[in-house]
Amino acid sequence: MSTVTDMRRQRPAAISVETFDVPLHARLTDRACAPQDGGVLLYWLGQAGFVIECSGMRMLIDPYLSDSLAQKYRGTRYPHTRMMAPPLDPATLDRLDLVLCTHRHTDHMDPGTLRPIARRFPSVKFVVPAASVDEAMKRCGVEASRLIPVNAGQRVQVLEDCYVSAIASAHETLDMDAQGLYPWLGYVIELASAQGAVKLYHSGDCVPYPELADRLAQHAVNLALLPVNGRDMERSGNGVPGNFTLDEAVALATAAGVPAMLAHHHGLFDFNTVSPEAIDARARQERAAGLQIHRAQTGCAWHVRNPDKRE
């Protein structure tokens, strides 16, 4: 009999966490800190943003490293004042190969971050929802030739050893335009190396919908990067669509047979967060059931190794 628990045991997540006390840009420019064994390294940028490194490749997903939202919403009910400073200045990056944006909202597709990146790295391309190409051109400050548009159900090669598969997300509704394009996406990122492939899933902003777990299970990902800030009528009614609750994120990982999740989208705006203690408590609770839960935090590096290459 096959069970979700059996699936986890067949595909255990080989994840280790390292803490560091130097600025992130210093860590990223230190070649000795690059992944040495074909694994993948992740660093949190706050909110839904991450640096992902593997086999000499470096990419960013949903980087929000400016104060664009505080400038936009100053004096309003939700002023979007940062609870944490940006851990990285794009100007300090020494190299970059790719940027992925899951959707058009500013904390995921930020002109204050993406335009400086586009100028600093003129060969870098941007993976964006095909439904939002025009908006992405404006926000990134680039021509269409620098975009890699994707839609739900597509799998595209974005770098020599990297493929991206798009899965529709619901934020808070599962939307599709007249051309069959989904504005809210999640990405399965397949990173190949001599040690074997590692698969990461970043849901973007998402709430549960009936087909999601089955769609995710088809990809057999090793680690899911999931938002856990939840949602309520007060936020939704004031233009702040929400995400999975912590319980819902855990339920998705369990139903899809994902062996590990990294909880994010917390700690940036005081009206749209969840306590770190709640995430840590749930991590302890789920450990016995075989699900690893890690809380996104600065000053940490997550090293994900191919589960078939265990030591």
Rank of each mutant, 00 (worst) to 15 (best):
A144V: 10
M109C: 11
K138A: 14
F126W: 05
Q157K: 12
A136S: 15
D110P: 01
E172G: 07
N151Q: 10
L174P: 07
R155N: 12
E160A: 14
P183S: 12
A170R: 02
G196W: 06
M137T: 11
C140V: 02
E160S: 15
E172R: 10
V124P: 00
S193H: 03
Q218Y: 04
C206S: 14
L174K: 12
S123P: 05
V164R: 07
L191F: 01
V207L: 00
V124S: 00
A217Q: 07
A136L: 10
L181E: 11
S132A: 14
P116K: 04
V221L: 09
V128D: 02
Y182Q: 13
N151D: 15
V164D: 09
P111R: 01
R215P: 02
R115F: 04
I148R: 11
P129Y: 02
K199R: 15
V124R: 00
V207Q: 02
D107N: 12
S169P: 02
L216T: 00
S123H: 13
C206P: 06
G186T: 00
M109K: 03
Y201G: 00
L216M: 03
F121L: 00
V128G: 01
A136F: 05
L212R: 07
A166P: 12
V188H: 00
Q179T: 06
K138V: 11
I148H: 09
P183H: 08
A178P: 04
S203E: 03
Q154T: 13
Y187R: 12
A192T: 08
T173D: 13
M137I: 13
S132P: 07
R119D: 10
R115G: 04
H202D: 05
H108Q: 14
Q179E: 13
T173E: 15
C140N: 03
L147H: 11
D175Q: 15
W184C: 10
S165C: 11
S123F: 10
L100R: 04
I167V: 14
L159K: 10
V128W: 02
K138D: 15
G153C: 10
H103G: 07
V150F: 08
P122R: 04
D205S: 02
E211P: 02
V188R: 00
A217V: 02
L200Y: 07
L212C: 08
P129S: 13
A152E: 08
A131L: 06
E172Q: 08
G204E: 05
Q154K: 11
A178G: 07
V128C: 03
A192C: 10
R104K: 13
V99N: 01
D205N: 06
R120S: 12
K138F: 15
